[in-house]
Simulated scan of single mutants.
Amino acid sequence: MPQALHAIARRTLLMALATPALARAQAPAWPDRPVRLVVPFGAGGAIDTLSRTVANAFPPLANGQTLVVENRGGAGGTIAGAVVAQARPDGATLMMADLGANAIARDLQPSLSYDPMRAFTPICHLVNLPLVLVVPAASPARDLAGLLDLARQRRDLVYAHPGIGYVGHLAQELLLRRTGVTMTPVPYRSGAEVVRSIIADETGSAIITVSTTLPFIREGKVRALAVAARERVPLLPDVPTIAEAGGPALAGFEATVWHGVLGPAGLPEPLVEAANRVFNAAMRQPDVARVVEQTQAGQIVGGTPAQFANFIQAEHARWAPLIQSAGIRTE
């Protein structure tokens, strides 16, 4: 090859090798503007507390940009889900993910305008929040076996849940089906109302988040029988898991409230990777960890977008058959 052509070929090869790195260097860093975080429930609940805690930690990790929490409650979280599903995939609109709106909503409501398993791009699994089975302080049930025996004796025993298709509702239905016991579900509008019904002895049991019930457990106003987590909860070390307390019928039983961050489908991979780094870093901040672990009794998860996507797929596979077989619908 003539020397001139050799030099041209060499320059061409070097430019080709340098182009991807140059493109990355010239690409605007995410975020380059304030980011909207759509929350599928109203202010004051556990998911709102988590969202605002993460938002407080966000700016120093995200080029000084803010994370603006926008509560869009209603319809089991699907109002927020529809907003984010229809948003431009530019990283300016994200969602604090929830089982209902982002995994099982179409199983509960077949006419839903979006498909939760296709409409979003998973970014980062933030936390798991444990659930606990509680009964009124005056209940004769001292443990899980006692509650199941009571339900077999009393056909009118009712349980409370904070809405059709919420994980506490699904977890209790799964527990009943696996043990062959019948109870009547009574829906309330919030976890706080569920706890009030248990304290007042209006309902016989509920599976609700530890963070919602912990003060009342400590005060003796409700009794904790078992946690729905895979392992015992550090803030309730003497309370067994449902799998421990339930015998062979409940072996491996597990249910959890989980939250993470996702965006609309079609988010570019470099943006997803950048957002994942920011949210993983936010969860490592001491103030965030303190709220999750001490106030919400939760577990920080973190990880890659692929891990979060696989987790959501697994959650759908866990709950969709129960929803179908039990005929659970929100419409």
Rank of each mutant, 00 (worst) to 15 (best):
A251T: 11
S205A: 13
Q299T: 15
V301C: 09
A62P: 00
V69L: 01
L262E: 15
P215N: 02
R11K: 06
A101W: 00
A243G: 01
G163C: 07
V39P: 02
Q299K: 13
T121Y: 01
P89A: 14
Q324W: 08
L94D: 03
L214E: 00
L67Y: 06
E231N: 12
Q324I: 06
M183N: 03
L267S: 08
A25G: 15
R118D: 13
A80Y: 03
L94P: 00
I47F: 10
P59C: 03
V227R: 05
R329P: 02
E269L: 14
R142L: 14
G163H: 07
Q172Y: 15
P110H: 07
S190A: 06
A29E: 15
A80I: 00
L133S: 09
R329L: 01
A55S: 12
T93A: 12
R10D: 12
A16N: 05
N128F: 05
E273D: 15
T203Y: 10
G73S: 14
P185I: 13
T121L: 03
P60M: 04
N63E: 13
I328R: 02
P240V: 02
A18H: 05
A206K: 05
A105I: 00
I328E: 07
T53W: 02
N310R: 13
T295H: 11
A228N: 02
A9S: 12
L175W: 03
I198K: 03
V210K: 00
M283H: 04
L99G: 00
V135H: 01
P2F: 04
E193G: 08
I79L: 11
P264H: 09
A309N: 07
A326L: 11
R36V: 10
D201E: 14
V35N: 03
R142G: 11
D32Y: 09
E219S: 04
T179G: 04
V181S: 14
V288N: 02
Y166T: 12
V194L: 06
L147Y: 01
S113R: 06
L5N: 14
P116H: 07
R10A: 15
Y188M: 11
L250T: 00
V272S: 01
R152N: 10
A314N: 11
R52Y: 10
N276G: 07
V167M: 08
I328T: 05
A103Q: 08
L61V: 13
R24S: 15
